[in-house]
């Protein structure tokens, strides 16, 4: 019987490669159609270059920016800000989510205040951050951290509270130590929610980055966009936007890859054809 399982797993692997290519191709259909129509509109001069540069112009602009090294410098600065902000905010979110999830006492103490802060749109606190921390990296990183905090906090909390109480009985009977209970029961059970939180936090960090950089800065992709806008280089604005989209999608895919690896035990509906 085990050899049956093995061969069937191999078959699954072969067909899954084929399916993967199909999946990627079907994801590209919509963007390609849009790009073609867009290019036609530009070539037929239905709209001026300043309002809507053609995809080809944008590719050329990207090429020039890459060649001059400007694009990579800006991207590096933005990436580091987002990463540091995400690590601080997401880390704290994970910590407090776990704390509040595990004990009702800390929930009663902390959750009401945190929920109140959560409802404040963080564009509203941006001026305050600039007043306190200036226009430098500190205020930007903190703004990103604030954005990244809540999705991870809320989802970690939720994930822990959704652990099956019946499995806690099993942990009691098997006399799990506190550490083993955390490692074998609570964390794995909460992991689907935690990874969802990571995805949402990364998105929020990225969004906060744009807000922070548009507010005023001297480098970063957001600055590049603002700078290009002043000189009506719409193609460069588009390059910036596309960079944000690409990096955002890339990090998102990374987390999904993690989900795929860590949650392979899950027995859930994966969607029809």
């Amino acid at each position: 019987m085990p050899s049956d399982i093995r061969t069937s797993r191999q078959n699954v692997r072969n067909t899954s490669n084929h399916k993967k290519v199909k999946k990627i191709l079907s994801g590209m259909i919509v963007p390609i159609i849009i790009a073609v129509i867009w290019q036609c509109i530009g070539t037929l001069e239905l709209v001026t270059q300043i309002v809507l540069p053609t995809p080809w112009d944008i590719v050329l602009a990207a090429k020039n920016l890459l060649a001059s090294g400007l694009l990579l410098t800006h991207l590096k600065v933005s990436f580091i800000r987002a990463a540091v902000g995400f690590i601080i905010g997401g880390g704290l979110g994970l910590f407090f989510g776990t704390l509040v999830g595990l004990s009702t006492r800390s929930e009663h103490l902390l959750d009401p205040s945190l929920q109140m802060i959560r409802t404040v749109p963080h564009l509203a606190v941006t001026p305050l951050f600039i007043l306190w921390f200036g226009l430098g990296d500190t205020s930007k990183v903190l703004l990103i951290a604030l954005g990244a905090f809540f999705p991870l906090y809320v989802n970690t909390f939720l994930g822990i509270r959704r652990v099956d109480a019946k499995l806690f009985d099993v942990a009691r009977i098997l006399e799990f130590s506190k550490w083993k209970r955390m490692k074998l029961l609570i964390l794995p059970a909460a992991l689907p929610n935690i990874l969802l939180g990571v995805r949402l936090s990364l998105g929020a960090a990225w969004l906060s980055l744009v807000v922070a950089e548009l507010m005023g800065s001297t480098e970063g992709v957001g600055y590049m966009i603002m700078d290009a806008r002043q000189f009506s280089n719409t193609d460069i604005v588009f390059v910036g936007i596309i960079i944000f989209a690409l990096v955002g999608k890339l990090t998102d895919s990374l987390v999904r890859l993690m989900e795929h690896h860590f949650l392979k035990w899950q027995d859930t509906y994966r969607g029809g054809a």
Binding site: D169, L184, A189, L191
Partner: peptide, 10 residues
């Protein structure tokens, strides 16, 4: 138990 109560991730 009546239900197996295994840890689904193990």
């Amino acid at each position: 138990f009546q239900e197996h109560r295994l840890f689904p991730w193990l």
